[in-house]
Computed example of a mutant assay.
Amino acid sequence: MRRMMILGSLLLTLSTTAMASQVYKWVDDKGVTHFGANPPQGQAATSVNTVIAQPKAAAKTATPTVPAVNSGEAEQKVIDAKVKQQVAEQATERKKYCESVRTNLAQLQNNPRLRTEVNGEQVRLGEDQRQAKIAEAQKAIKENCN
């Protein structure tokens, strides 16, 4: 019985490496990385090493190590942080813009006698000009501030 267990364990250990298939990595036209058992036709693909090295036995006095972050992952985190910052800045600018447009719309709707500066001179807006500016402001709010 013991011999059968040892033989079975040995066969199981050897069979996992025999069953491992080759894995290929390639990047498509859109820049997306793919992994697969068969490389694509007409594209360059690289073979990926799927063998996992056994960890070395840690010495009793060794301090636990922090796993090293892949440099690609670190670069991606930096890029993600920059994109998030840009999105936040754009959201802040859009919020300020929307607040300004809404304030202008309220002024246009509540004050029938408006003046604007044209070539350094104060000119009173006519009713049709005021209605046109109200429509422009409403359109800007509808397109940008929802």
Rank of each mutant, 00 (worst) to 15 (best):
R2S: 07
R2M: 06
R3I: 04
M4K: 13
M4F: 14
M5D: 14
M5N: 07
I6S: 03
I6V: 01
L7M: 12
L7W: 02
L7Q: 09
L7K: 14
L7A: 15
G8S: 13
L10I: 08
L11M: 12
L11C: 10
L11V: 07
T13Y: 11
T13F: 13
L14T: 12
S15H: 00
S15F: 00
T16N: 09
T17W: 05
A18F: 07
A18N: 07
M19E: 08
A20V: 01
S21Y: 12
S21M: 12
Q22V: 11
Q22N: 08
V23R: 11
V23M: 11
V23I: 13
K25Q: 15
K25N: 09
W26G: 02
W26M: 04
W26F: 04
W26A: 07
W26N: 04
V27Q: 06
D28A: 01
D29E: 11
K30W: 08
K30N: 10
K30L: 09
G31D: 00
G31H: 01
V32A: 10
V32L: 06
H34D: 08
G36P: 08
G36H: 14
N38R: 08
N38Y: 08
P39E: 03
P40M: 09
P40F: 07
Q41S: 09
Q41I: 10
Q41W: 04
Q43C: 01
Q43I: 05
Q43H: 07
Q43P: 00
A44P: 03
T46Y: 08
S47K: 15
N49R: 12
N49A: 14
T50F: 00
T50C: 01
T50V: 05
T50W: 00
I52W: 02
I52F: 01
Q54M: 10
K56D: 09
K56G: 06
A57R: 05
A57L: 05
A58M: 15
A59H: 13
A59R: 10
K60G: 04
A62S: 07
A62H: 03
A62V: 01
T63Q: 14
P64A: 02
P64H: 01
T65Y: 00
T65V: 10
V66I: 12
V66G: 03
V66H: 10
A68W: 11
V69E: 14
V69F: 00
N70H: 14
N70Y: 10
N70W: 08
S71N: 07
E73R: 09
E73L: 12
E73N: 08
A74S: 08
A74P: 01
A74C: 03
E75G: 11
Q76T: 07
K77C: 03
V78L: 11
D80W: 00
A81N: 04
A81S: 09
A81G: 04
A81C: 00
K82P: 02
V83N: 04
V83M: 12
V83F: 09
V83T: 07
K84P: 02
K84H: 05
Q85Y: 13
Q85G: 11
Q85F: 12
